[in-house]
Design a protein around this nucleic acid. Structure first.
Ligand SMILES: [Zn+2]
Ligand SMILES: [Zn+2]
Lengths: 287, 287
DNA sequence: TATTCCGATAGTGAC
DNA sequence: GTCACTATCGGAATGAG
């Protein structure tokens, strides 16, 4: 059973999502689990507001909503209303947040709470069938949220949706004979990075487009668009799966760029790829 | 007998020292050699003034002093008076100019005229004993000029010189018993680069210090401070000399940086090396 | 493969 | 290894209670 590099730096006594400024109590929290959890916060906020809070002039001691965010919750309210303010949800088993540096139009992170799995490499964490099953359910819900968010953003451009709307406006056509609207769930990928940089287990829920200001480097793209990205559905990995090999994944990151949509190659020309992704987005959103 | 890469690009009908803006007629010139050379210019100018000329607003056809610079001269005035305006000299066999991008306090280039050797790789050109002998003489004169120039610049800081001057001021001490002044010729290196970037044969005459604004990249330093720099005295190379190997020289350029004066290593930290060279210069000039 | 900053490295075009 | 421009690549530091 592997452990991630530098666990001390990253994991004790807390795990930090750098630049997300979310603290996720693990060990202390683990001790508290037997005790009644006190003052469970019900606030919603996205991860970036932590940064804003830090910039506030108020120096009075104030609760950091994110320090509390990951506390195990009593099973009472299994889901949270995710209003217009935030797509985040908290369940008994996991927290869902927006990636503060989204690498595509929609990019969420699913963070399991389980302190016995949080610090494991995904291969090992997902080797536990019960845990895997639980995460799959959470991820499935998360993917639906992501699809809804994607639909909200690019739905108005969709030719499929437009055809359906027009047919619907005509009336006369039975509901199950209408042309189907676009299925945005198909545009959502769910999986993990073979070599996560952050020790805390995190599942990416991300739209395919890879169009984002925050997409700044080679690995940003390659880590989502090569086998370096391992879909949650592929777990548990076979003992002999080559995706267990570090060498293999270093190779993936170093491959030439290939457009996820049309297959065009871009060598190592990241900025050319990025321009191309912008063009692809313009077509993709219209599908 | 090797030829340099891209001879067409660089050599025909002229050789250009890029950014020196010196055109060195070779082929046409070769044809003209039998004819009386017309209008031999007697101007002095350093190579940078060509740039200035190009920036002039005058668009009237004007002579480029450097287009004419390399024409073979009748053996009449074998040496030129090198006044304060310029250290350049022109002889029957070669032209001496300041490097427009000096990589050390003093940095001259010796450019042979011989059109039968100009385009050869140094290894091959210097395999001709007569040519080598001629270049050695020219280079020897050039090195003395460089030493004089170096003395002019850093001589005032020299402790050796100061000791000599003070002894001299005392009188009483016989001339041959005075402490010796600093020998600046020892601080001048004469040689070529194993893989010259410019096809036209050029011999570097350069002070050891490598202190210069224009020293901007790894290879600027390594090409003078590793065996990539081949001293003219080492020619002709033995058939089996490893310095004939391209692989060997690529290795030289990729080596870690080593201070030429104290031997300290700098890995690939060019900017750290550069700071250090500045400090070394302060001590070196005082020797 | 968290980001950001800085600097080293690599490819190109120059006329 | 000519220069200069651009962009890619590479290591190191990164909150503070
Ligand atoms: Zn494409
Ligand atoms: Zn030193």
């Amino acid at each position: 059973m592997r452990r991630l590099k530098n666990p001390v730096t990253y994991c004790l006594p807390k795990i930090r999502f750098f630049h997300h400024f979310i603290s996720i109590p693990i060990n202390k929290n683990y001790l508290k689990m037997a005790q009644p959890s006190k003052d469970p916060t019900t606030d919603f906020a996205d991860s970036s507001s932590s940064t804003k809070a830090n910039n506030d002039a108020t120096t009075t001691p104030q609760k950091n909503a994110f320090t509390e965010l990951m506390k195990p919750k009593p099973p009472s309210p299994p889901k949270k209303d995710h209003s217009q303010r935030s797509t985040h949800t908290k369940t008994e088993n996991a927290v869902l947040i927006k990636d503060l540096y989204p690498k595509a139009t929609v990019h969420l992170l699913l963070l399991p709470r389980s302190p016995t799995h949080n610090l494991l490499h995904p291969h090992d964490a997902f080797a536990d069938p019960q845990f895997l099953s639980m995460i799959r359910e959470e991820a499935s819900s998360a993917a639906k949220l992501a699809a809804a968010e994607l639909s909200r953003i690019i739905g108005p451009f969709s030719k499929s949706n437009k055809a359906r709307d027009e047919a619907m406006d005509l009336g006369q056509i039975p509901y199950d004979k209408l042309p189907p609207g676009r299925d945005y769930l198909k545009e959502i990928k769910v999986g993990i990075h073979a070599h996560p940089s952050m020790d805390h287990l995190h599942v990416h829920i991300i739209s395919r487009d890879m169009r984002s200001e925050k997409l700044k480097g080679r690995n940003h793209y390659q880590s989502f668009c090569t086998p370096f990205f391992i879909e949650l559905e592929h777990y548990p990995l076979d003992e002999n799966d080559q995706r267990r090999s570090s060498r293999y994944h270093n190779g993936n990151l170093r491959k030439d760029f290939v457009c996820w949509r049309c297959g065009k190659e871009f060598g190592n020309k990241f900025s050319v790829l990025k321009k191309h992704l912008e063009e692809e987005f313009e077509e993709w959103k219209n599908e």
